[in-house]
């Protein structure tokens, strides 16, 4: 019961029904943790890396212009 209340508090809203009773249960994903988190980890990694790479490419294009561009 106390665990249940903690799960509710983590969610941040007063009166909601979170599916998990504890953080450990959430991480275990009913025994499918490796598959679920493996899928999410790679997705997050890709979608975090791509904006950085594309911003660096844009920055490089800007720098090439301001260095080598006409005065």
């Amino acid at each position: 019961m106390g665990q249940r209340r903690r799960a509710r508090r983590t969610a941040g809203t007063g009166n909601v029904d979170v599916n998990w009773n504890s953080a450990g249960e959430f991480i275990a994903m009913g025994g499918y943790g490796l598959y679920v988190w493996g899928a999410y980890a790679v997705t997050v990694a890709c979608m975090a890396a791509e904006p950085v790479l594309v911003a660096l490419r844009h920055r490089a294009a800007q720098r090439a212009l301001s260095d080598g561009g006409r005065p």
């Binding site: 969610a11 909601v16 029904d17 979170v18 599916n19 998990w20 959430f26 994903m29 009913g30 025994g31 499918y32 598959y35 679920v36």
Partner: peptide, 14 residues
């Protein structure tokens, strides 16, 4: 956090 566990696939469905 909110969606229930699937009856046939367990939490793999997430």
């Amino acid at each position: 956090l909110r969606a229930p566990t699937d009856a046939t696939q367990g939490d793999a469905y997430r």
